[in-house]
Nucleic acid binder design. Structure first.
Lengths: 144, 144
DNA sequence: TTCCATATCGGAATCATTCCAGTTTGATTA
DNA sequence: TAATCAAACTGGAATGATTCCGATATGGAA
């Protein structure tokens, strides 16, 4: 499941027991069509409106959250910038431009060497962010 | 410069031509003293107040931003959670608990294998975040 | 001591995101 | 095909971390 299309995502929705609505179809369209832009909620809202006239921003947010939580897409979180969404769930590095916000997928495997990245893509790495999210030992022991 | 203390940071301030104020000294104290907690602005504010009675939250934010931009500390950015600050600028992985927000430093080198991390630390990785921030090719060509 | 660029201040503004309470609807079942 | 209801949608209000603002204070060079 490297390259997901609309049908794949709708299939996943059904599997999870989630409903397929015109709004969701339009949002999926927007996500797939603009996959390389790693669109944010605003762009998805604008794009989705072209297909389904009646989509609200609240719905776009709720839907993107729902999709993320169900593993259909990945949410790339930021601080003073809109979150962005990625349909490509495979392991890859995101090259994020501090100036223009462009996000480029980088599939160079294993040894994460900023120098290699730079040489191969022309991207200059000033700051690396490598985080693993999950559950710490203490929380795993604690019930709840 | 693996383990930074108060004097190191004040030295860096001088080097950069930044002023040393009671507020900044108190903020540096808070940063160093709570380094393993990776404190957020609120905790730094509370801690700094214990030393310097007159520090405002605005100043804390401005100062942390200033310090981050000048490379004295590293800002760990989040979406719906306070940003956190790290005095340790060496390459390391941050293990972030999704439930309690604890941030644990992980100094395992090279091949970033979630399984290894889990085995060595008892941390269960559900989500990896590896991002390189910098400048893309297009932006480098463009003037400004 | 003077001086001024830099810091600090509190309060208002920002803005992406979430919450809420009321309405609509997909899709299951009879 | 209609009835049913949990799930989804809606717009507007609320949230909350962070930034902005214009005024005031001050570190440290001369």
């Amino acid at each position: 499941m490297e390259i997901k299309n609309k049908e794949d995502l709708i299939g996943q929705l059904k599997e999870k027991g989630l409903k397929i609505t015109p709004q969701r179809a339009a949002i999926i369209d927007a996500l797939v069509k603009n996959r390389y832009e790693h669109p944010g909620a605003t762009m998805i809202f604008t794009e989705a409106r072209k297909k389904a006239k009646h989509v609200s921003l609240s719905t776009v947010y709720a839907t993107l959250k729902e999709f993320s939580e169900n593993g259909l897409i990945k949410q790339l979180e930021f601080d003073r910038m809109e979150n962005r969404y990625d349909v490509d769930l495979s392991d890859h590095i995101n090259l994020i431009c501090k100036r223009c916000g462009t996000i480029i997928d980088c599939t160079i495997p294993a040894p994460l060497e900023p120098r290699d990245i730079a040489r191969k893509s022309g991207f200059i790495v000033t700051d690396t962010r490598m985080e693993f999210h999950g559950y710490c030992n203490d929380c795993l022991k604690r019930p709840g």
